[in-house]
Computed example of a mutant assay.
Amino acid sequence: MNIKSIVFTIFVFLVIAGALLYYFLATPSFVVKEGPPKVIAVLIASDLQLSSVEGVKAGLKELNYQIDKDVIIKLNNPKGDREFTAEMARQMVASKPDLMVGLSTSASSALIEANKDAKLPLVFGDVGNFQQLGITDIKHPGGVMTGVVVDNVGVAPKRMEILKSLSPKIKTIGILLNPKHVSYQDILKSSGEGAEKLGIKLIWYEIAAKEDIAKAMAKLVKEKPDAVMTTSEALISNNPSLITPILRTAKIPSMDFNVEVGIQAGYLMVYGVSRFEIGKQSARIIDKVLKGEDPGSIPVEFASTPSLEINKALADEMGIEIPDPLLLQANKVYR
């Protein structure tokens, strides 16, 4: 082998070696995260947000984090107990994690209250009203928090429109509501404005405890509104077995907000944002904070577009005819 061949061989080898080295160093999945794993303490309101937690994990994995190696997620679930939620929030702050995540309005509010002095970084998700968290500027939230907002309250008029398109004969809509809901007044206002525009009368059925459900449903069956809507509330969402069988027997069409379980729970229609997707969206913000960005300088984001699901099989069983234009609007139809 002459000298030119040797030089050429060495040159080719160096080029290939350099390319391989660049690939392994530049490809995110091979980036080595130095130091101990980051601890993320997560507070939810109830089992309702478990799909959001799974979304956070999935989102972090897509960003090349290895769960339990790069990040440790410590889940706190008060199972709908508001007093326990506040206690868990205080315990989380005392543990001084690298980052706190609140997945619901009540969970995030509890963390904000407990975090007043510690000022630990906080990312919220699945929050219905950012103003209730003390944020006035979504582009520059300030302080130590930012996150993802879901407008479950503001879309109430849209849910009414969908019910109205089911049948023009719908003149009254019953709404199941917890008077202790953190957005209680906003729900009354948004729903009232939507009903007024559509010429619909609202009938409120307040449920402050699980024991109230049977009484509220008995009253609802007696008054028999033309349709029923739920509100985003753990107490109502966690007890569909006490609600949907009664609506089915009474042949009252219903609209829920919970994409993950609403149809399976027995509601006729669902209009809302996937909590799993909210979790994934929150993960992208979590990533920024873990990499050193100031939460207060990260703009608050709004969740993706709501989707409509319809249980046509249930409609057929109840003798309810769903117009073809409404079926065509649906993102998913269960037949």
Rank of each mutant, 00 (worst) to 15 (best):
S5H: 04
I6F: 15
F11A: 14
I16H: 10
G18V: 15
F24S: 06
A26I: 14
A26H: 11
S29Q: 15
S29R: 14
F30S: 06
V32W: 08
G35T: 07
P37N: 13
K38G: 00
V39E: 13
I40M: 07
I44S: 09
A45V: 03
L48N: 12
G55E: 01
K61H: 03
K61P: 00
Y65R: 00
I72E: 06
I72C: 01
K74C: 00
K74S: 11
N76R: 13
N77T: 06
N77R: 07
N77K: 09
G80Y: 00
G80E: 02
E83M: 01
A86L: 09
R90Q: 12
Q91K: 14
V93Y: 08
A94I: 11
K96C: 00
L99V: 09
M100S: 03
V101A: 04
L103H: 01
L103V: 04
S104K: 10
S106G: 10
L111E: 07
L111T: 05
L111D: 04
I112F: 15
K116V: 08
D117H: 08
L120M: 03
V123D: 00
F124D: 02
G125S: 08
G125W: 12
D126E: 04
Q132E: 09
Q132L: 10
T136Q: 10
H140S: 15
G142L: 07
M145F: 04
V155C: 07
V155W: 11
M160W: 11
E161M: 09
E161N: 02
I162P: 08
L166D: 10
L166W: 12
S167C: 10
S167G: 12
T172N: 06
L177Y: 05
L188V: 02
G192R: 15
E193T: 01
G194L: 14
G194R: 02
G194E: 13
K197E: 13
L198H: 11
K201G: 08
K201H: 07
L202M: 14
I203Q: 15
W204L: 08
E206L: 00
I207L: 14
K210D: 14
E211I: 01
D212H: 07
D212F: 10
A218L: 02
A218P: 03
A218Q: 08
K219L: 03
K222E: 13
V228R: 02
V228Q: 12
S232T: 12
S232W: 13
A234H: 14
L235V: 12
I236G: 03
P240F: 06
P240I: 10
S241F: 03
L247M: 10
R248M: 11
R248W: 08
A250C: 01
P253W: 10
N258G: 06
E260H: 03
E260Y: 05
V261H: 12
Q264W: 04
G266C: 02
L268C: 07
L268H: 11
M269K: 03
G272T: 04
R275T: 11
R275S: 00
R275V: 00
F276D: 02
F276A: 10
I278T: 05
Q281T: 06
K288N: 11
E293P: 11
F302N: 08
S304K: 14
S307P: 10
E309V: 00
K312L: 15
L314T: 05
A315F: 14
P323Q: 03
L327I: 07
L327S: 04
V333Q: 01
Y334S: 04
